[in-house]
Design a protein around this nucleic acid. Structure first.
Length: 487
RNA sequence: GCUCCGAUAGUGUAGCUCGGCCAAUCAUUCAGGACUCUCACUCCUGAGACUGGGGUUCAAAUCCCCAUCGGAGCACCA
């Protein structure tokens, strides 16, 4: 028994250096989510591992139910850039209708496909009874004629469908004579396609042709597509092609986000429930980016998860832990006071507090905060205090509470060292003329006051001490909006 | 109803192909401690699992069967 806990992804079966071709094939009907990220990362990592070819293919041949969003094409490219992945090739399946039609015609001529006019429900019944429909055995010429009429737009929506002949008595009902093309008289969102076509290829057909044409050697995809291999294998067999090696993974359920689907999110965004696809409450890559999750953390998260067909239900905590390690070393520290309470230091002289931007990386320098005699502190920090309590305003001074209402204190004679030794409380603070800060996070918004230095960190990730890591998203004159990543 | 997958600590994984080196790996999580002018980071210690039942075998997490549980497919979606 060998025990070699090899890190990262397991070797790909039958993979040779330089010869691997893999793809990630999303329908751009919305932006990439956490689930998409798995496909983007795992596939591209394998290609990198074997110095192969990585293809991004937009499977965008449904103008109706999962209608592509024009913006989403660009979003995917953008998210790949962020991940540091450059696809060797970008393909739009909607560009290849003529190719699909060609192969469809060949299959009809081979007697391996037929135009079926059955109503969906009726065909289903027949199929479940292992019975062929009357259209299965019509002559070649007639079939071709029907097909030509389909292409010419002479039939209405849903009136006919092209089926691949498999084995109508196959023990697995999922494999019996599956649909390859359907009629939909609708414009494709891409203007180059528009109203050009009436007959649309379905996933298993388009995918089968594409994977072959592109020379795919390995496919890793969700287990919901496990039957695709079996279905598509009929086409591969008819044409004498070799099917790529396939691997599948199960569903990812994120504890924090529950169940979601691109279409349900889309609806919720349209109704204004979310501010957009990068709303911090959403599990999209765009939202993670905006919150300050690093691509490296997401990659490590996905790679560590590996490829297994079991459904996984995990917590964002693991991703946050990865991100925290990366981000801790490279972020400046600032004070942000939520639920602020005014505290007056009665014997205070105006002064300038000097604080390190980073607790250990002193090369990052210091930040300066001018203070008069009033500061804000978090309500929760002062709630249990009594008159006489001593606490430290971090990196500033020790104070002794002299009054609770109004909240007042004076400098304390207790030294920093003595305070630390007695495990006294050390809290953060902010001058009352600080900048107002709104934190948008996965659990809603939090407002408060921050030090002015925050306004110099636009688009950077910072740590609000004792609060968490945030990305500074927007800076107005006197207001900063930040996105919360995690504690 | 038919068909296909899968099941290792709270969570995610390694090990299963080729049975022994597995009193079971790593990470996260949780608990305790060290460090620290943050509830961050780092470090130390500890907690915690082979779904159940049969079988094969000198030997089973690993092979076989059954059960249970979970997931997926049977679309004119991807």
């Amino acid at each position: 028994m060998k025990r070699n806990p090899c890190k990262g992804l397991k070797p790909l079966e039958g993979a040779e250096i330089g010869k691997v071709v893999m793809r990630f094939a999303p329908n751009p009907n919305g932006p990439a989510t956490l689930g998409s990220a798995r496909g983007m990362i795992v596939n591209s990592e394998y290609v990198k591992m074997y110095k192969g070819k990585f293809i991004l293919r937009f499977d965008d041949t449904d103008p109706d139910i999962k209608r592509p969003m024009l913006e989403a094409y660009e979003w995917y490219l953008d998210d790949f850039r962020w991940l540091g992945v450059v696809p060797d090739q970008v393909i739009y399946t909607s560009d290849h209708f003529p190719l699909y039609y060609d192969y469809a015609r060949k299959l009809i001529e081979m007697g391996k496909a037929y135009v079926c006019f059955c109503k969906g429900e009726y065909f289903k019944e027949l199929k479940n009874d292992k019975k062929a429909c009357p259209h299965r055995e019509v002559g070649l010429e007639e079939n071709l004629r029907h097909w030509e009429k389909m292409l010419a737009g002479e039939y209405e929506d849903h009136q006919a469908v092209l089926r691949i002949k498999t084995d109508i008595e196959h023990k697995d009902p999922a494999l019996r004579d599956w649909g390859a093309f359907r009629i939909r008289k609708m414009a494709h969102p891409r203007s180059v396609i528009g109203n050009k076509y009436f007959v649309w290829p379905l996933l298993d057909f388009a995918g089968a042709i594409e994977d072959h044409e592109l020379g795919m050697t390995h496919i890793i995809r969700g287990k919901d597509l496990m039957d695709s291999e079996k279905r598509q294998s009929y086409i591969y067999k008819y044409f004498g092609w070799k099917y790529p090696r396939t691997t599948h993974w199960g569903r990812i359920k994120i504890y924090e986000f529950g169940k979601f689907s691109t279409s349900s999110l889309r609806k919720a965004i349209e109704t204004g429930e979310y501010s957009g696809w990068d709303d911090p409450r959403l599990p999209t890559i765009r939202a993670f980016r905006r919150r300050g999750i690093k691509a490296e953390a997401l990659k490590k998260f996905m790679i560590d998860m590996g490829v297994g067909t079991t459904d996984v239900s995990l917590s964002m905590e693991s991703l946050y832990a990865e991100n925290r390690k990366i981000v801790d070393a490279i972020t400046n520290r600032y004070f942000f006071v939520w639920d602020p309470m005014e505290l007056e230091i009665t014997d205070s002289e105006p002064t300038v507090a000097k604080l390190p931007l980073h607790p250990t990386d002193h090369a990052r320098g210091i930040r300066e905060i001018s203070v008069r005699n009033k500061v804000f502190v978090c309500r929760e920090d002062v709630e249990k205090l009594k008159v006489g309590s001593v606490l430290r305003l971090k990196d500033f001074c020790n104070i002794e509470i002299t009054s609770l209402v109004p909240l007042q204190a004076r400098h304390s004679a207790v030294s920093l060292e003595a305070h630390q030794k007695s495990k006294g409380k050390i809290i953060h603070w902010v001058p009352i003329n600080g900048i107002s800060v709104k934190v948008r996070g996965p659990y809603g918004d939090i407002e408060g006051t921050g030090e002015h230095g925050i306004a110099t960190e636009l688009d950077k990730i910072v740590q609000f001490e004792r609060f968490g890591f945030c990305r500074i998203d927007a800076i107005d004159k006197e207001k900063v909006e930040v996105y919360f990543a995690h504690k």
